[in-house]
Simulated assay, not measured.
Amino acid sequence: MKIGYARVSTEEQHLDLQLIALNTFGCDRVLTDQGISGVRFDRTGLKEALSLAQKGDTLVVWRLDRLGRSLGHLVEVMSGLRARGVEFASLTESIQTNSPAGMFMFHMIAALAEFERSLISERTRAGVAAARQRGSKPGRPLALTPEQCAQAKELLRNHSETFVAETFHVHHRTLRRSLSQGAAEATDNVHCSSLA
């Protein structure tokens, strides 16, 4: 049996591309996680996919980083699969571990991916430090203005979080984030507080 696993890091991202690729590859079953970082290995969909896989099965992902972002954890998962006689395939990198060459490719690509993430992280930290020195505030701007935060706070007294989020055309997580960031950043006349 081919067991597919798909993951996106945020609720706003879509699984469509991964699901199409996994179904085209012929996966009998596809498990997913949405809005969960690849750094975490306590993912419901991943746990179910790993427990479902039996000897002779193949765990399939669209891209290696959908399984995980830490080389150590990836190797740990792969070792567990190999010990149980479960093969692994990553479609984008054309990795199939049913051969020594496939295992070698897995280790090489996983190591290069981790190296690339380390470089990106290092550049990001350097960029944030430079922005702070220039007096800029790094990070994504708030989805709601301070005035909208105040209105949202008032609406939340009598309405559900879903209703308020729809009123401002944002996802409920975006509403929460805006209110909590607004509470932390607002120093003027309008202050927002986080959801209870």
Rank of each mutant, 00 (worst) to 15 (best):
R176V: 03
H171D: 13
A101Y: 04
E114H: 08
S118M: 10
E48R: 14
E114Q: 13
T124F: 04
G85R: 07
A53P: 02
G4S: 09
S193A: 10
F163K: 11
E166M: 12
H73V: 00
T145Y: 02
C192H: 10
T97R: 11
E147D: 10
A113P: 12
R43H: 15
L31R: 12
T24G: 01
R43V: 11
G102N: 07
A165D: 07
E154S: 14
L74H: 04
H191Q: 08
V190A: 11
A53V: 05
G135M: 03
N23F: 03
L155E: 14
T24Y: 02
G139Q: 07
V86K: 09
N23L: 02
D65M: 05
L64I: 05
R66N: 00
N98T: 06
W62F: 09
E116I: 10
R140T: 07
S9Q: 04
C27Y: 04
S94P: 12
S51D: 11
F104R: 11
Q13E: 11
Q133N: 01
Q54W: 00
E76L: 08
S178T: 12
R63V: 01
H159E: 15
I20A: 10
L46G: 08
R69W: 00
A49R: 09
L71E: 01
E166P: 01
R69C: 00
C149P: 15
T10L: 13
R117F: 10
L17T: 11
A131W: 03
